[in-house]
């Protein structure tokens, strides 16, 4: 592992860059750095934003000397990025997905693009393990790594104006779940009855950085009963 590079991306944000690629090694390092700085509880740190191969630290430059803080962070990092440094074990989250054509209007085009039947698309999607590289863009949206090469499909040429919350999609080499109902250009292959994000829940986001995710196919009936159960409990 090369030494992380620390540069200031404003007078209140320190940018930590790791190696220039997003393989699982760099993901592990970003996560180790994130967990280590989080556990440090340095009062100067207001926020930590992990991504593929960077970690941003937001500070209050009036309350704490930025130069001294940069030194403390660099020294914490030098231990955290060592390959033998322990990190919390990955939690496995199983996400039930109904791959009904109504929820997955692009199942067919994803299959056609890759010469697979719909059943094969579903079995490839449910047989892999994905890791949550980071959450970003919108509340609870997880960037997942690990999509099988034979499912890679380009985005739609024209994005849909409304995608229902819980939709599971594919865009290029990425797969993910829309936590909120938004416009979007991902190819939709199914929908989960789970709520990915609820600001009044603790924790608000279903997924967190470093989780391992598995998708489990459920029937339309199971999807509906899951939804009904949710209605009864909320």
């Amino acid at each position: 592992m090369t030494t992380p590079q620390l540069t200031w991306s404003s007078e209140r944000t320190l940018r930590i860059a790791f190696a220039e690629n997003a393989d699982e090694t760099v993901h592990r390092t970003v996560r180790a750095a994130y967990e280590s700085l989080r556990a440090s509880q340095l009062p100067a740190i207001l926020d930590l934003t992990p991504a593929y191969d960077t970690l941003q630290v937001t500070i209050d430059p009036l309350a704490h000397d930025p130069t001294a803080l940069e030194r403390s962070i660099a020294s914490l990092l030098s231990e955290a990025v060592a390959p033998d440094h322990p990190i919390p074990p990955a939690r496995t989250v199983t996400i039930p997905v109904c791959y009904d054509p109504e929820f997955g209007p692009d199942l067919e085009s994803v299959g056609a693009h890759n010469n697979l039947s719909i059943e094969q698309v579903v079995s490839r999607h449910t047989s892999a393990e994905y890791s949550v590289h980071f959450l970003g863009f919108s509340p609870g949206f997880a960037y997942l790594g690990g999509l099988a090469r034979e499912l890679w499909t380009p985005r739609l040429d024209t994005p849909r104006t409304r995608i229902p919350a819980g939709s599971v999609g594919i865009a290029g080499s990425q797969t993910g779940i829309y936590p909120q109902s938004t416009p979007g250009g991902w190819r939709l292959i199914g929908r989960t009855p789970l709520v990915l994000f609820d600001p009044m829940r603790d924790p608000p986001a279903l997924l967190s950085v470093g989780d391992t995710v598995r998708f489990q196919a459920i029937s339309r009936d199971e999807y509906e009963s899951h939804r009904n159960e949710r209605r009864r409990t909320t």
Partner: peptide, 9 residues
């Protein structure tokens, strides 16, 4: 809302 960017907020 400071401190929640790691969950996309």
């Amino acid at each position: 809302r400071i401190g929640h960017s790691a969950i996309g907020v």
